[in-house]
Amino acid sequence: MLEVEGLAKRYGEVLALKDLTVSVEEGECLVLLGRNGAGKTTALRCMAGVLLPTAGTVKVDGIDAADDPAAVRARVGLMPEVPGLYERMSARAYLDHFGAIYDVEPPVRRRRIEELLEVFELTDAGDRWLGTFSKGMRQKVALIRATLHRPRLILADEPTSALDPDSARRAWIYLKDLQRDGCALVICTHSMEEAEHLAGDIGILSAGRALAVGNMVELRRRSGLKMRQEVRDLPTLQDIYLAIVDNHRDLAEVRTA
């Protein structure tokens, strides 16, 4: 579904991303971890066909993002870190607007909007202006917007960072359902719990480079961590992440080449 080969992105003199190679099949989920400024958002934007790669290729459903970025964007649902909602629009009108942009037929999008508002417990608030919504409610609307058109690939930047635990679990169940329906997911997050819950593969980014990509078993091996002594248990993703990042402390933060 998603094939990324040697992806690099440069903004002026800043090399935000270098030589990223990952692939995600239908029904799989890749979670990207990394510190702030590691290049996760840039990677998502390139995968979504919003930004063009400086080097390397991004293919979604076999379509090269450099050749036909609009076709890539039509197949992708991107949920940026900031919801970016129109304050003076009701949730229903807002979702209807984006459904129309994605060419979802009016009856289909009306039905689907109601379904998803119900999933995220927003049915009653659906006619209120989005400006009156709480941070968590806005994030839910952004998630609905990104998935309304049933994209083949969902790219989400910290999708549950503003949600309460119950709503976050609801969102994870929803994303897992989409995954089961064959949708591929790429999630950027700082929540290890979220990563463990959703991830098939995990990519750890630092200073624009991929330090490690693999499933939990492979990453555990890469980290060199043994059983946790104090609890005689396998190391958690948090332990693995910190160990891998610590092993690459020498990577310069300033990425000017």
């Binding site: 609009a70 964007r73 991107l78 940026p80 970016g84 984006f98």
Partner: peptide, 14 residues
Amino acid sequence: ERTTLEVLLSTPLR
């Protein structure tokens, strides 16, 4: 500034 443009830019709109 309100980041709504980024959302619009992530759609298939040219």
